[in-house]
Design a protein around this nucleic acid. Structure first.
Length: 578
RNA sequence: GCCCCCGUAGCUCAGUGGAUAGAGCAUCCCCCUCCUAAGGGGAGGGUCACACGUUCGAUUCGUGUCGGGGGCGCCA
């Protein structure tokens, strides 16, 4: 990778040296900020004001002392002390001008950093129950998780993307039962379909394909299915559980077939959906394997040995209150079945055992209360729970005709991710999802997304890319030949603005990863596109002056590189033409 | 009751321990003989919910109040 030292980091080093000289006994890290006002220079430093108190000196006087100690450099054009003690710095234009060729030379390495130092890090996201199509809420987790994983990878982490498949447990049993009951209808055996079973049309579709493949092989009498089952009206959950246990008893080994067929179908659908959405995973981790491999037994046994478990009311409890949780949690129910929590303890221990220095879970915000117990269990098992970081993603609430739309999977009345993608397109959906901070509620107005799809900000950015491509193809030359262009000719305000913006890109990538905030990248790309459009209107690129032409083409070629790179990190395409 | 998120322009939302708080949309006024007008320039629009505290400095940090949204299972 091309080593590249930005104007900011170079200047920062100069200031650090000066401060060390002025205040050798104080460990101060110099912070440089980009002033909001252009008249305050390229960078402003507030270190004099920070040092004023501990050194008991006047901040403006201190600022002068720092400036006197600043090593000589051809980077700095001029400095000034302003206001209460700011040091404002203007760099020579050459500091920015040389950037264009550097970006192009570095190519896809430009923007990458070494913040992660090659550390192995896992991002687990989506992990939706495979009990039906992904809906728009899952879409947000997918877009966020994928973009986060991308910016972390660019930031120098070795990123592993994982989907946790909840293929064990009651929800899957309910799906298998729902499918079977629809199948029985095809066999003319009618069991009243429970209101709390999965209502979606996809369940009928699965039943039909089983019927098409196997005829009435799995047919059982409705009366047997309903035998000794609690009344649906007075005990709906008990009714459902009764049906499930009857299904298991009546089908015997065939139950596993129905269960497995439903799982395969839904998981495959989910995988295709995500792949089309540009979201892929290194591992699809099966919850069932945790049960079958004895990992859960082992995890529970480890906790028991350490004295963190106790029995009460026939169930086995984890004393999570000892680790800051508000109440203790059951790991094994009185019916002998492990809870989801028990599986999750084993799963997280397994993640740690796989050698990830850090593990990021992307969860829906409704799981926030779940964090203390998982971290508590990890601590109890002797692990460093701080290696687990949870990124909570608030709900994407769907609005249709100004009304909040229900997103209940069981009720089957929700908009799927697939529908959304078909309506607004993958690019707009990916971009729209990460245009909000993840911990902020996202109101997804379907009608607006549909009616205004052409006004979506994603097109504004893509248009900038297409415009550049259009110019470069009109020029019909080789971009590599531009690397030696005389960039000192880039002196228009719009050109310098664009160059400064390009310089920010590596910082934006780093911040987006560090703060789990891919939206910073989305906003940056909007700004970058705006700068490009501003330049486009102000300057002509293919001009008679050969030197100027080369310099300008170099600048926009570098801009295109960053646009393309940033859009790719967000999973958005960069079209050559629009 | 406890926990989480939010309160910034008419609307949707960024942003920041610093100097005169931004963008898009909407409204109004301008700019294509020219590499894509899906663009650009300009105008109007603000008690950064409120109070107190920390700080040289608070819209930003802390506490509290008010208001909006969401979550709190031997479900997963």
């Amino acid at each position: 990778m091309t080593t590249y030292s930005s104007p900011k980091s170079q200047l920062s080093a100069l200031f650090q040296a000066a401060v060390t000289q002025v205040a050798p006994d104080l460990a101060v890290t110099v912070e440089l900020e980009r002033p909001k006002q252009a008249s305050h220079g390229d960078f402003a430093c507030n270190v004099a004001m920070q040092l004023a108190k501990p050194l008991k000196r006047n901040p403006r006087e201190l600022a002068q002392a720092i400036l006197d100690a600043l090593p000589a450099s051809d980077l700095v054009a001029r400095t000034e002390i302003a206001g209460p003690g700011f040091i404002n710095v203007v760099l020579h234009a050459s500091a920015w001008q040389s950037l264009a060729a550097q970006v192009l030379k570095a190519g896809d390495a430009y923007g990458c950093g070494d913040m992660g130092k090659g550390e192995k890090i896992q991002v687990e996201f989506v992990s939706a129950n495979p009990t039906g199509p992904l809906h728009v809420g899952h879409g947000r987790g997918a877009a966020f998780g994928a973009s986060l994983a991308n910016v972390l990878a660019l930031g120098g982490y070795q990123v592993h993307r994982e989907y946790y498949v909840n293929d064990a447990g009651r929800q899957m049993d309910i799906l298998a039962l729902s499918t079977w009951l629809r199948y029985l209808e095809l066999c003319n055996e009618f069991v009243p379909f429970p209101g709390n079973a999965y209502q979606g049309g996809y369940v009928r579709t699965m039943a039909e394909s089983i019927f098409a493949l196997h005829g009435d092989r799995y047919k059982r009498a409705a009366g047997e299915v309903l035998a000794r089952v609690p009344d649906a009206a007075t005990d709906p959950e008990g009714h459902l559980d009764g049906l499930i246990s009857n299904a298991k008893a009546l089908l015997g080994p065939d139950y596993a077939y129905v269960h497995g067929a439903a799982l395969e179908e839904q998981l495959g659908d989910c995988r295709n959906d995500l792949t089309e959405f540009g979201v892929t995973f290194d591992t699809w981790f099966s919850e069932k394997t945790l049960h079958e491999s004895g990992l859960i037994d082992r995890a529970v046994e480890a906790l028991r040995k350490q004295g963190h478990l106790y029995e009460q009311d026939g169930a086995l409890w984890f004393r999570s209150t000892a680790f800051g949780d508000e109440k203790d949690r059951v790991v094994r129910r009185d019916n002998g079945i492990y809870t989801y929590f028990a599986a999750d303890i084993a799963y997280h221990l397994n993640k740690f055992e796989r050698g990830f220095a850090r593990v990021i879970d992307v969860w829906g915000a409704d799981h926030h209360g779940y964090i203390p117990r998982v971290k508590g269990a990890l601590t109890a098992a002797g692990q460093d729970a701080d290696r687990l970081m949870v990124a909570l993603v608030q709900f994407a609430v769907l609005y249709r005709n100004g009304q909040k739309a229900s997103m209940s999977t069981r009720a089957g009345e929700y908009v799927t991710l697939r529908d959304l993608r078909a309506e607004v397109g993958n690019d707009a959906a990916r971009f729209f999802y990460v245009l909000r901070k993840s911990d902020q509620h996202l109101d997804f107005d379907l009608d607006l997304a549909k009616s205004q799809s052409n006004d979506n900000p994603v097109y504004y950015i893509q248009y900038a890319h297409a415009r550049i491509s259009s110019v470069l193809s009109a020029w019909d030359g080789n971009v590599e030949d531009l690397l030696d262009a005389n960039t000192t000719l880039l002196s228009q305000p719009q050109e310098l603005t664009l160059l400064r913006r390009l310089a920010e890109y590596p910082e934006v990538i780093a911040a987006a990863g560090r703060e789990f905030s891919p939206h910073l990248l989305a906003y940056y790309l909007k700004d970058l596109a705006a700068d490009l459009h501003g330049l486009y209107v102000a300057c002509k690129f293919i001009v008679d002056d050969e030197e100027l032409k080369q310099a300008r083409l170099l600048l926009i070629a570098a801009t295109r590189q960053v646009l393309r790179h940033g859009l790719a990190a967000l999973g958005v395409s960069a079209p050559e033409k629009m």
